[in-house]
Design a protein around this nucleic acid. Structure first.
Lengths: 199, 199, 199, 199
DNA sequence: TATGAATGAGCATTCATTCAT
DNA sequence: CATGAATGAATGCTCATTCAT
């Protein structure tokens, strides 16, 4: 018997709920200290049900990394690497990036954990790394054009891109925890400096 | 009868060996997947002996973070915040920092893990954070002076310091793993840019 | 979906089985030499299941003391402290008590262990002691009335009650192990003597 | 090389010290929770030395039971089972026994533990039991003579002896903990009652 | 004899996963 | 599909005992 549309919707909703609670718990307590029981409890369902939606704990963690990455990644990549005015694009982009990062306090914790144990979280590290490559490449084009146009100093393009990613990633390490934009805005000029703006 | 000098030395050596192997294992497999048995095995002793040197797994992990931090921290902080020529000092310092960081591939992994789970690794996070504060403050003085002398653009001092720390910390996130200095040197100019050098 | 009635019953039965086997093992081998594995094995379940029914070994031991105490205690206390003829009541009561005690060879061993280590088995000692107080008090009333009516010699009421408890408790220390009533009956007159019957 | 007299003395003293501290610890915390390290610590020596004096923990516990039993037993047995006036002898003996028992709060705890786990502490139980037999027999003679002389009611001799032992043993179960003799004296008449004194 | 580092057997407990209801 | 009882592998830690110094 096929499931009704309502049931489908309800299941989708439940899946989202599990994912959301799992993200929170994984971020705060880490992979091992987050038990399936805790996730189920937070999601208001029985722990057996978690296995209806995710084949294993590993799978759940993977989903927890992957699905938001798709959204976040898309947003981080939504800039024009062929913009007429690279410098202007960079300025806009840093602003957007810093804002985005500041709004993902929980999620970025997960990244840290994966990045801190790449051997252990192989699959997760893989997709993160893949995104990093993409990001690096696209940024590279923009940076290169900026340098060619004389807007940016001549620096090793890849190194700049990596440095910028490090910068973004590291922002979350600060103890400045609230997402009050005013604080985060201070980092925008710093981020822009990384690209080596002339004058 | 107290222990002989030779025995004391042997014990110290054994302790160091445990610490070293534990660092490696923690870095590669993470806290939970590193069992005391594995550490003991790697160190070539019985697992019971680990407890002769470290009261618990937690304690071992803590030592693994703390003791190297003292050395590394000292090196990172060994610059003159009142240098006559702040810009020159910064250039030298970035070079040294990037080199140091590039030589600590294993150890920095541990940092990531702690930073990714500050609630779980409270004590460890605490001392890391403490060092961050120190570093930030000392850097702040140097940056401020650079700005006052017109060598650096006017940027929010604290934000620059934090950005620089993020940059350093994040370098390890790249997949460029070998400590071949030539690669790492590319990041030096990027790091310097962060401070907003005039001209 | 809640558990079916049958399941509930089965679980209750299993819990009882664990409790029973644990009691036996604790009594024979003591707390420390009784491993959860042995209990599970004796109960015919996996050791993991023991934790489904009892949160910890301590908890299991506690239940092992508490639950039977409630039953046994009620029986030991089921006498009329305001009986018209205290002496008769005492005679009946000693008979009943000695019989009861003779039927609890296993369980009383647990008492000994708790009484032998009150600091270690604090909670268990507490409830035992509480029962002792109750028993002592109720016995006290009966004894006092017996003395007032001239049926019993004048002795320190509390001391008599305590002595009687000691007597009951100590019976189990004898090597006469079978619950053949004929042997146990011999102790009834001795118990009665403790109250100081006149004539 | 033979040990000097002084050394012998010192060793004997040390052995006594260990035994004393072990008795205390075993009594309060039980066999398993009393570690050799704790005993050594309490005795002010290194734990390795404990094994110089006692072959194993079991042996130490055994000594802890056996040696005091010899002294205590002798005192408890120092009465004249052929006394001209059995009743008088019994009165004196109960007084002495109750006093003795009241002065052994720590040691009697050990008895309880052994009696609560006879299978586990086989050897210890054996010697305790052996003493019980001796005591029972000697008491039996006295009781029998008392009954023949018409001083005591006719009761099952063995049962009386066992009851009396139970009574003595159980006294320690009361919460009256101080060795203030006045309290303990109250139990003397109760003990005497057990023998069924005529009139 | 005294010391205490080294050893490893032994155990309580956790928790992902399975599966009957 | 939802539930939660059952399972047992895995692991940190304790501690008696040995033995080199």
């Amino acid at each position: 018997m096929a499931l009704s549309e309502d049931q489908m919707k309800a299941m989708h909703k439940k899946r989202e709920k599990i994912l959301q609670e799992a993200t929170m718990l994984f971020a705060v307590h880490g992979y091992n200290d987050t038990t399936i029981a805790k996730v189920a409890n937070a999601a208001g369902i029985s722990f057996g049900s978690v296995f209806t939606y995710f084949a294993s704990k590993e799978e759940l963690f993977y989903a927890t990394i992957k699905e938001p990455l798709e959204k976040l990644g898309e947003e981080l990549l939504s800039f024009d690497s062929n913009a007429v005015n690279p410098m202007k694009e960079i300025e806009a982009l840093v602003q957007k990036h810093v804002l985005l990062i500041s709004q993902q306090p929980v999620y970025l914790r997960l990244f840290q954990q994966v990045l801190g144990q790449p051997e252990r979280f192989k699959r997760e590290f893989e997709i993160l790394n893949q995104f990093f490559q993409l990001f690096q490449n696209k940024m590279g084009i923009l940076i290169k054009r900026g340098q060619e146009l004389g807007q940016l100093r001549i620096l090793h393009v890849e190194a700049v891109a990596i440095s910028y990613l490090s910068f973004l990633n590291g922002l979350r390490l600060t103890t400045i925890d609230g997402p009050e934009h005013d604080v985060w805005k201070l980092f925008v000029p710093c981020g822009i400096q990384l690209f080596g703006p002339v004058e």
